[in-house]
């Protein structure tokens, strides 16, 4: 009995230390990457000009859609914009931009200045709709397939590595 307890105690401590060791090299900050593989449902977004409402069926037409959340007040969005512009050249990918907590005029100015990469633009003035997508800060981009299943989430501005990755996935 005593031996068993001694053995178990040592084992528990060993286990804890091993777990600590492996956790050391992990990033303690949280990213919503665990949501990859989930299906997006209940989409109901008003289009940018307010004349059209964006539904799930709009996504079914294309094999892949990149949903990008942006705003004119967000400076990292400017940084990633050229990448979105290059992505818009790809025929296999549709880009849906969701204008997040923004003023319409400012958003238009932003697009006139830097170009419009989006096939469709929707707006989320209060930011409540974006909660459905699990968005917590912009820019964020979600790559979904035909079935609206999340393939990849990009948190923060897209960079060239992300760009290559997206091209790899869609081709």
């Amino acid at each position: 009995m005593q031996k068993v307890i001694k053995f178990l105690t040592t084992l528990i401590f060993l286990f804890v230390i091993v777990v600590f060791y492996f956790s050391l090299n992990k990033d303690p900050s949280y990213q919503t990457n665990s949501l990859v593989g989930k299906k997006l449902v209940e989409l109901n977004l008003e289009s940018f000009d307010g004349d059209y409402s964006l539904r799930t069926k709009d996504f079914k037409k294309n094999n892949f859609t990149l949903i990008n959340f942006w705003a004119s007040w967000c400076s990292p969005c400017r940084v990633e914009h050229p990448i979105l512009m290059s992505l818009s050249k790809s025929k296999k990918l549709k880009l849906v931009g969701i204008n997040f907590k923004d003023k319409k005029n400012n958003a238009k100015k932003f697009l006139n200045e830097l170009g419009n990469p989006y096939n469709l633009i929707a707006k989320d003035e209060i930011g409540k709709k974006s909660v459905n997508f699990g968005i917590y800060g912009i820019p964020e981009s979600i790559l979904v397939n035909k079935e609206m299943i999340v393939i990849k989430k990009f948190i923060g501005p897209l960079n060239t590595r992300d760009y290559n990755e997206i091209l790899k996935i869609i081709n």
């Binding site: 060791y21 050391l24 992990k26």
Partner: peptide, 19 residues
């Protein structure tokens, strides 16, 4: 390794030493 209000700057070497 913990996400907390008071985090000191992260340094894995430091962690390994203390561990």
């Amino acid at each position: 390794i913990l996400n907390s209000v008071h985090t000191f700057a992260n340094d894995p070497n430091r962690g390994i030493y203390m561990l």
